[in-house]
Design a protein around this nucleic acid. Sequence first.
DNA 1: ACCTGAACACCGTTCAAGT
DNA 2: ACCTGAACACCGTTCAAGT
Lengths: 193, 193
Amino acid sequence: MPPTRRTRQQPLSHGRIVATALGLLSRVGLPDLTMRAIGTELGVQQSALYHHFANKQAMLGAVADEILARAPRPSTPDEAPWQARVQERCTQLHAAVTAYPDGADLVMSMWAFGMGGQTPFDELSLLLREAGISPAVAPTAARTLLHFVYGHAYDEQSHDVAARSGILTAEREPSDFGTGLRILVSGIEALLP
Amino acid sequence: MPPTRRTRQQPLSHGRIVATALGLLSRVGLPDLTMRAIGTELGVQQSALYHHFANKQAMLGAVADEILARAPRPSTPDEAPWQARVQERCTQLHAAVTAYPDGADLVMSMWAFGMGGQTPFDELSLLLREAGISPAVAPTAARTLLHFVYGHAYDEQSHDVAARSGILTAEREPSDFGTGLRILVSGIEALLP
DNA sequence: ACCTGAACACCGTTCAAGT
DNA sequence: ACCTGAACACCGTTCAAGT
């Protein structure tokens, strides 16, 4: 008797697989997000998933994109100082990846591997170019911001996992993310002519 | 006929296992750094390793510490400006983790999980406190620097792996690391009274 | 105390066969 | 075209048994 097997109503599709994977991720975490578990949840064999994605990594790339797509849209007006806009976007991305267990790990890996998560980089690069950062440096600054956002989120989420395993790690102040972000924005500001 | 099985001369030990794992890591990478492969390399059963480490993660923590311990020692004199000292240390750490395939991934994971890599954080925190950064903010600044160092190195190494798999990712300028580091140091400088 | 040998409970991926 | 069912080639970890 399988634990949770839903009868299949609709045919499989990219979107249905990603939605199911996302729901499963939030319940069991990345290590238990197996192709078998996703198949069981959808009421199909694990091998059926390979008709829609070339391999597991391609599917995880789509999941990472969905996590980022669920980040709230910026509310700061376009006329606001670029510092405020950058800080808002980074805070939203931080919230988006920490909304799912191991979300930072997943998004960071997929972005580094070139299999997803390109949008935040493009958005931040554009925002910084509009702010007057030279086109040669804007991508570097955007990457540096994202390394911080994902790295910090990864740290927080690993801290949670480690704490659950009874491992001691350094405590993290709630203000820590904001302070780090201000360091970065000040540093980028110093590059302006 | 096993591929490479060395006859065992000395008894197993922490140090011998770590050294063997490090050699294997540099040849085959993290995904193929299995307990079986390490055992074969040492001429023992994989289960023998569990008499010296509680589990694979604990062993990988020791490997991460060894990678960091092999970073070159600072040559910049203690009297030099803190900016130069921070930049040198970060550049050395960057070199240390990129010296082994998947080194950044390994060190970042173990540090986040609290199973290794504590030394760089302690060193940078101290250095920044000596520079006049308030004790409340110095750890945050140190963490922000390390997120950048490891994040950037992780990116570069993933780029290599992806390229080998024929996946296209954005090109990276060699000056990119230095530019990002200067952004961070400028930002930390802005926190000084 | 240290290690062997075998097993357990899993993985991702492939592929002939069905519909 | 889409999916099943079974297999393949692996994993990390455990544990009785040997020395």
